[in-house]
Structures are given as C-alpha cells and as structure tokens.
C-alpha cells in the first residue's frame, strides 16, 4: 500500500471549516466506504496552549486503528473530544454522519461511542457482574431500572466470557487484580454494545501474557466494530494494528498508515520509534518504556 496523504482540504467543505453555532446539523447522506469516524480541522487550546492543532482523522468500520505518539502528544485529549469530555476550539467530529461536538457525554454513548480510561476506572463497591450489568442497562428506562434484576443479560454473559472474568462474577471489582480491572472495563464497553470503541492505553502495566490476551480481546471487539487504541507499546501495535495514526505535539505526523509504513517513516522514527528502540534496547523491555514516566512506572505494578 502506498502512503496516503491526508485528505485534500476544500475551502467550502462545511465539514472542514470550524463549526459555527448557527450551522445546521451535519448529516451527510450515507456513502459506501464513508469512514465511521470522521474528524476534520480539530483544534483545542488550554489557556493559550495548543493541545491539538488542525487534526484530521478517519477510522473505518471493522478496523483496529492505533493512535500513537509521545507523552503529551494529545492522544487522550483527542479521545476526550470525541467522547464529549472536552470541547474543541475548532473543528468537527462526525460519527456515522452524526455530529458529536456539543453533545453531552452520555448522549454520545447513546450514539454508539464508548471509551475506557487511561487509569482503569471501574465501580469498586460493586461486583464484576454488577459493573457489567450497569454497562449493559443504560438504555433501560427508570421504571425498569427500579426493578430488582433477575439473571444476566446476554451482553453481560458475552462480556464475562470474552474477558475471562466469569469466575469473578460475584467478586467486588475493587478486589480484582490490575489487569483484570482493565479487562473488566473493556468488558463493560463491550456490554454497552457500541460501534466505536476508544481504548486509552489498555495494556499499561500488563504482563506480556496479559498483553497478548488483551490484543486478542481487541481483535474480537473489532468484528463489526471500530476500535481506536491509544498505546505506547510499539510491539503491541505491530501485532494488533490494522491502521496507525501518529500524533506529535498536537499535530498529525502520519495519518492512517499501515504498521510497515509507520515503521519505515523516518520522521516518525525520529520523534517516536527511534526513541522507543533505544529505550527498549537499553531497558530490555517493550516499547512501553519509550514514552517515559507514566508507562514505565506501570511496569512495576505488573510485577
């Protein structure tokens, strides 16, 4: 495959120029091959600091798309914008033709977008089963929420099965091991039944075996869904990515490339992979160490 340039920018394209509050809702007609997620001209500032600048990004149905980049590149910020946690200064995010910018977090979940967090957050006072059950029940009305649940929904059983947490169903989530919490969070995402899943560093702090299991889990999730994975671990990326986008200092360095292309790209190597190699060679560990402090310290938890 040849390197794909970022899509050409047309002056009059409403999806490209910054959205104005008076703009009509953008619901373009469904086109074959249209990306499920389409981000155009995205920018965000935190008090003068440009965390993201002019970001264009596409993800298609059924692909595992890795978003990589050094610390502070803006990866989490991008996920935050897609899921409504952060409001962008400029640009648009359309998901299956639906404009996401300006919607509340829980509305965006109802559109079919789910996420996990860089630091796995599960409800520790509840059991594993209860965590999954809540995730699967968000479409229920208040009347049905008020009933005492009997038995688990199919979505919960599926999540227990693929995450391997069936034995822990009655265990309180706070008592799970670190890696299991991350799987539980992915399981909750699966139980929600989203079409786009955003995973922020799903293998941070995991052992090599756990990483492999998580990778397989991600491949499973990608059947009929789109999975966007934020990760530092280059080895993990090589094994499980379909497409890769590289972010650096808030800008797209390389958009929608294959793993081979990213690895062959000298600019990418310079800002990212090169450093990852050096670190890996010296530390004798996977590329998780490349990005520095947070990911590296995670390794201690796994030990």
């Amino acid at each position: 495959m040849s390197p794909q340039p970022t899509p050409p920018r047309a002056e009059g394209d409403p999806a490209i120029r910054p959205r104005h509050p008076s703009d009509p809702p953008q619901t373009p007609p469904e086109k074959a091959g249209e990306p499920l997620l389409r981000i155009r001209g995205l920018g965000v500032q935190f008090g003068g600091f440009h965390a993201l600048t002019d970001v264009d990004f596409d993800a298609r149905e059924g692909e595992v798309h890795f978003l990589i980049g050094p610390n502070g590149a803006g990866k989490t910020t991008l996920v935050d914008i897609i899921t409504g946690l952060t409001k962008p200064t400029t640009g648009s995010v359309s998901f299956d033709g639906q404009q996401l910018v300006g919607h509340k977090e829980h509305r965006i979940v109802h559109f079919g977008v789910g996420r996990t967090f860089q630091a796995a957050t599960v409800f520790e006072a509840l059991t594993v089963g209860e965590n999954l059950d809540l995730a699967a029940s968000y479409r229920l009305g208040l009347r049905r929420l008020l009933r005492q649940p009997r038995g688990h929904a199919d979505a919960v059983v599926e999540a227990l099965e693929v995450t391997g947490l069936a034995d822990e169903v009655d265990k309180s989530a706070g008592a799970l091991a670190h890696g299991q919490k991350q799987w539980l969070e992915i399981g909750m995402l699966l139980a929600q039944g989203p079409r786009l899943l955003l995973l922020d560093e799903p293998v941070a702090g995991m052992s090599p075996d756990e990483r492999t299991r998580t990778g397989e889990l991600i491949r499973y999730l990608a059947r009929g869904r789109t999975v966007l994975v934020v990760e530092h671990d280059m080895d993990f990326m090589r094994r499980f990515a379909d497409r890769v986008t590289v972010l650096h200092e808030g800008r797209i360095l390389r958009a929608d490339a294959t793993v081979a292309e990213v690895q062959a790209d000298p600019t990418v190597q310079e800002v990212y992979i090169g450093r990852a190699r050096d670190d890996r060679n010296s530390a004798g560990r996977s590329g998780a160490a490349a990005a520095g402090a947070p990911a590296a310290s995670d390794d201690e938890e796994a030990a």
Partner: peptide
C-alpha cells in the same frame, strides 16, 4: 437493591465515569 441502587452507588463513587456508561 435495584439496578438503580447500584447506579446510585456508582454515581457516588465515580460520577464522571457514569456519564461514559450512558447515564445522566
């Protein structure tokens, strides 16, 4: 004891996380 009761505990412990579960 209902699902709502668990949801309430979830909101108590991690209100912001609950939003990303699709609840207000």
């Amino acid at each position: 004891r209902s699902r709502y009761g668990r949801l309430l505990v979830a909101v108590r412990d991690a209100e912001d996380r609950v939003r990303f579960l699709g609840y207000d």
